[in-house]
Computed example of a mutant assay.
Amino acid sequence: MRVHVALLMTAMLVAGCAGGPSRTKGDAVPQPSAPITASPTAGAFSPTDIAWLQLTAAMTQRLLPVLDLVPTHTTDPTWRRLAAQVQASTRADLNRSRDLLTRAGAPTTNPHEGHDMPGMITADELAVLRSASGKTFQRLLAAHLRAHLAQAVTIAAAEQRAGVHPDTTALATAVIRSGDGDLARLDELDRAPTPHAT
């Protein structure tokens, strides 16, 4: 069990989770807020499962406001389509994460509130995105999407290896599959000309 926790916590340290609003790697390792022992009806959720679900939910909550900007900040249909695809998959992942946290008896509060780490857009970055449009917006969006998707895949792979609850590791597998697919589509979009951007 300690080995499992250490593996995921190492991945989170790579993500640079800190106790405050800076992106400086923190000294403290993020700890799961849920009880180690779940109720008998919840199944066997490990601390690793809980920590991953909490971090995944926190990352997704930061990404959704970015995706909400796309329809009003670019007219390029390919970027709008990609954003809609990512938004659909991340909302589904967020709902599943919340459902699993509820089943595990984990707190409903976000233990990563106020933390900034790779894959999490900051308030300042969101403000810059809100003031951008067209190709500038698309360039910024691509960078933030790539950072989020790459980090989501990294920590999901750690959960896949170290988690114990079958529904949670199944969600991790789904996150990896959708994340890899979205990264591939993002690569194609980055290489393609954008004649419709305005």
Rank of each mutant, 00 (worst) to 15 (best):
D49R: 02
S22C: 05
L55T: 02
G181P: 06
R161A: 14
A58I: 00
I50K: 06
A127D: 08
R103C: 04
F45K: 07
P111R: 03
M1G: 12
F45T: 06
I176K: 08
K25Q: 13
P166D: 11
V175C: 11
A104G: 11
A132C: 04
Q138N: 11
L67R: 05
L149P: 06
S33G: 15
A150V: 11
V3A: 15
G114S: 01
Q61G: 12
G16Y: 02
T102N: 15
A44G: 11
M12K: 02
T154L: 13
H196E: 12
H148T: 10
W79V: 00
T108C: 02
T78S: 13
D190K: 04
R185A: 14
H144C: 10
L7T: 05
L63C: 04
L140D: 08
T48G: 10
D190F: 03
T122Y: 02
P47R: 04
M117A: 14
L53R: 05
H148D: 09
P30K: 09
P166R: 10
V29G: 12
D99P: 01
T173G: 14
T102W: 07
T168K: 03
T56W: 00
H4E: 14
G43W: 07
R191H: 10
T173F: 01
T109I: 01
V66L: 12
A44E: 11
A51P: 03
L8G: 09
G181K: 09
L149F: 01
L94P: 03
A132W: 00
A142N: 10
L82A: 06
V86G: 06
L67W: 04
A172P: 03
R2V: 08
F137M: 07
M1R: 14
E159W: 08
V86F: 06
P47C: 06
G20E: 07
